[in-house]
């Protein structure tokens, strides 16, 4: 699984950091979300799905790949 953050939509709500702190952080320059990893480790996938659903700006897109444990 991979994710992308749409920089035009992200306004730093921070809900992704709440649900998946090992994957997202808020940046030091403008407070918007940044990715801590390029590839989502399998044990983080559920957290990332929660984060994607919790984003009020719908700024997160999940790219599912073959072999991913989530549909």
């Amino acid at each position: 699984m991979k994710v992308t953050i749409d920089p035009d939509r992200c306004v730093g709500q921070g809900m992704c950091v709440l649900y998946a702190p090992k994957v997202f952080q808020l940046g030091d320059e403008d407070g918007r979300a940044e990715l801590l990893v390029a590839q989502i480790p399998p044990e983080q996938e559920d957290a990332v799905i929660q984060a994607e659903r919790a984003c009020p700006e719908q700024a997160i897109t999940i790219i599912r790949e073959k072999g991913s444990i989530v549909p």
């Binding site: 306004v11 709500q13 649900y19 929660q50 659903r53 919790a54 009020p56 700006e57």
Partner: peptide, 15 residues
């Protein structure tokens, strides 16, 4: 609660 999408801090650029 799962995936709490609240907008208590607003939404969009002025968030």
């Amino acid at each position: 609660r799962e995936s709490n999408r609240h907008v208590a801090f607003g939404s969009g650029i002025h968030r």
